[in-house]
C-alpha cells in the first residue's frame, strides 16, 4: 500500500510514452477484445452454451485442440533435437538449416497453405507417393496435422537453442566422470535443464496451432464434423452475419486456450520446483 503507483524518476517522457502506450493498446487490442467479451456478456453463459453445445461446434473445437496438441508434441520432440543439432554439431549447411527454421514465421500462412496442398494433394509430389500405399493426406486430418506442424515448427527450437548454448561443459563432464553413460547424462542432466524452455516453446506452438487459419483451410477440405477447424466455423458464422454465433465460438476458443496455457504454466512452475532448476 505504501508503494506509490509510479515512482518518481528523473527520466523524461513519462506522460508521452505512457499516453501512447495506453492509448494504442486500448484502441488496437483491449477495446476490440472488450467488444467480444461484452457481446458474450449480453449473450449470457446460457446463450453461449446453446451455441457451442451443438455437434458441429463440438466436433470443430475437439478437432482443433486435439490436432494442435499432437502437432505441438511433434514439434516439441523435433524442436529439441533440431536445437541440439544446430548448437552442438558442425556440418556443411548448418547456417542454412538454422535460417530455414524461421521460414514458417516469415512465410505468409495463405502461401504455406496452398503450397502444402499442392505437395500433399493426391496429384502432388508427396501426395502421390502416399497414395501408392493408400494413404490420403490432403483433405484429411493428416493434412491439418502437417499444416499445424509447419506453423509451429520454429517455436521450440528457438526457445531451446539459447539454453543449449548456455549449458556449461563441466556439468556434462562431471556426469561422465561419475560413470554415467552418455544417454544417461542426456536424460538425467541435459533434458531437465532444457525442460522449462522446451515447455515454453511447446505452449507457444500450441497456442499458435489452435488459432491457425490460413495454412489449414486449403489443405483441410473443410468437411463438417470431419475436417472443419474451429476458426473456420467463426468465419462461416460471420459470412452468414450471425455475429452472436461467431462471438460465442470465439469466446469458447479464448476460454479453452487460456485454460490450456494456464495449465501449461502451472506444469512449468511445478516441474521447475521439482527439478530445482530455473
Amino acid at each position: 500500500m505504501g508503494r506509490p503507483l509510479i515512482h518518481r524518476s528523473p527520466m523524461p517522457g513519462l506522460g508521452l510514452s505512457m499516453g501512447i502506450t495506453l492509448t494504442m493498446l486500448s484502441l488496437v487490442v483491449l477495446l476490440p477484445i472488450g467488444a467480444l467479451l461484452l457481446k458474450g456478456a449480453n449473450f449470457g453463459v446460457a446463450g453461449i452454451w446453446e451455441t457451442v453445445n451443438r455437434e458441429r461446434v463440438w466436433a470443430a473445437l475437439f478437432l482443433s485442440f486435439r490436432l494442435s496438441l499432437f502437432a505441438a508434441l511433434f514439434n516439441l520432440v523435433f524442436g529439441v533435437i533440431l536445437a541440439w543439432v544446430l548448437v552442438r554439431y558442425r556440418f556443411a549447411g548448418r547456417r542454412l538449416l538454422d535460417a530455414a527454421v524461421d521460414l514458417p514465421f516469415a512465410l505468409p500462412t495463405a502461401v504455406a497453405g496452398i503450397a502444402l496442398t499442392a505437395l500433399y494433394a493426391p496429384n502432388g509430389a508427396f501426395g502421390a507417393l502416399a497414395a501408392e500405399i493408400g494413404w490420403k493426406i490432403a483433405y484429411t486430418q493428416w493434412g491439418i496435422f502437417i499444416a499445424l506442424v509447419f506453423v509451429g515448427l520454429p517455436f521450440v527450437t528457438r526457445t531451446v537453442q539459447p539454453v543449449v548454448e548456455e549449458i556449461e561443459a563441466e556439468v556434462e563432464e562431471a556426469s561422465a566422470t561419475l560413470g554415467a553413460s552418455r544417454l544417461y547424462t542426456l536424460r538425467r542432466v541435459v533434458l531437465p535443464m532444457l525442460a522449462p524452455a522446451a515447455l515454453t516453446g511447446f505452449a507457444l506452438s500450441l497456442a499458435r496451432a489452435v488459432g491457425e487459419y490460413g495454412s489449414v483451410i486449403f489443405i483441410a477440405g473443410n468437411i463438417p464434423l470431419k475436417t472443419e477447424i474451429a476458426p473456420l466455423l467463426i468465419v462461416i458464422q460471420l459470412e452468414e452475419f450471425n455475429y452472436d454465433g461467431a462471438a460465442a465460438i470465439g469466446i469458447a476458443m479464448l476460454v479453452i486456450s487460456f485454460a490450456m496455457l494456464l495449465a501449461i504454466n502451472l506444469i512449468g512452475v511445478w516441474s521447475r520446483r521439482r527439478i530445482g532448476y530455473v
Binding site: P32, I33, G211, Y213, G214, P231, L232, A246, A247, S257
Partner: peptide
Amino acid sequence: SVSPVVAGL
C-alpha cells in the same frame, strides 16, 4: 495468444 480469426471478429 489470440487466434487471428478471433482478432478479426
